[in-house]
Write a protein that binds this DNA or RNA. Structure first.
Lengths: 146, 146
DNA sequence: TTCCTTGCAAACGATTTGCATTGGA
DNA sequence: TCCAATGCAAATCGTTTGCAAGGAA
């Protein structure tokens, strides 16, 4: 079995928690690494086929989230989508289609990210809120839904 | 019955759709106008008391959203929170507490908002995505949860 | 053998809907 | 009077969990 860099990172992290990196979990990580944005359990189920029961999928997602391999996102009603955590996937933002609900990743340059961070600091500066992360969600219509 | 400015705005808007501004709907609008951030059906139910059935509350929220009086937000798993639409409430951003899930509004200055808009344009500039709105969600710990 | 993992089915929580009743213009 | 609005109960949908079977170390 050939292990990619990603596989090694995930495997190492799971090992710290005494959690096995099983075939089913590897499939989910692979599917998410190939996706261009967060994916819901239902969407992943479509990718993986009906041989993977939804309950196992949900359990896999929960395990990977607890191990900080995946990050949850909530951009459409009642659905949680997951993507690889930032330390695996890099910092980025989201284009959320208000028609079909699909979410697409967008990269920013370091320069843009610095300007954004400055804005976040301006906003939280005088409040008693302690920032841990920020997410710029851009809503609109994706290519397919215009 | 004394009507506030907000009441007149909402009443006028609903009138355009041949939708009545009933006591139950007015209560929800009032409760949301007094909140400092988006509220879920369950949270509103706590405010309004058990005399308002949840099903009516959900129907009210759906009607007000369809009329563009309310905007939905999805920041915690499985829960939709609503707030007054921007044309009633003003443009603002959110501080999302990762511990308790509560969401608090934050205002920005026009100057900060211009800088943010520039960033959004930089990001969407080369994509085929058509922006309609942006939302800067700042995650962290609220005053109570630190 | 010892635990972790998986599958299936039942249980859950948030939200929606069918249907009969109520209420306003 | 007539149709929108409401209440109640049942139904849905995404997600979670109990329990027994399968699998790796």
């Amino acid at each position: 079995m050939v292990k990619s860099t990603l596989d090694k990172q995930v495997s190492g992290r799971l090992g710290q928690d005494d959690v096995r990196y099983t075939a089913g979990r590897r499939e989910v990580v692979l599917a998410l690494s190939e996706a261009d944005g967060p994916r819901s359990a239902a969407e992943l189920s479509d990718d993986l086929g009906p041989s993977v029961p939804l309950s196992s999928l949900y359990r896999t997602l929960a395990v990977l989230e607890a191990a900080d391999i995946l990050t949850p996102h909530f951009s459409s009603p009642g659905v949680t989508r997951y993507e690889l955590a930032e330390w695996l996937n890099g910092h980025h933002h989201h284009l959320v289609c208000v028609v079909c609900g699909q979410v697409e990743d967008v990269e920013t340059t370091d320069e843009v990210e610095l300007r954004l961070q400055a804005i976040v600091s301006d906003i939280t500066g005088r409040s008693s809120f302690v920032e841990s992360n920020h997410a710029l969600e851009i809503e609109g219509k994706c290519r397919n839904c215009q």
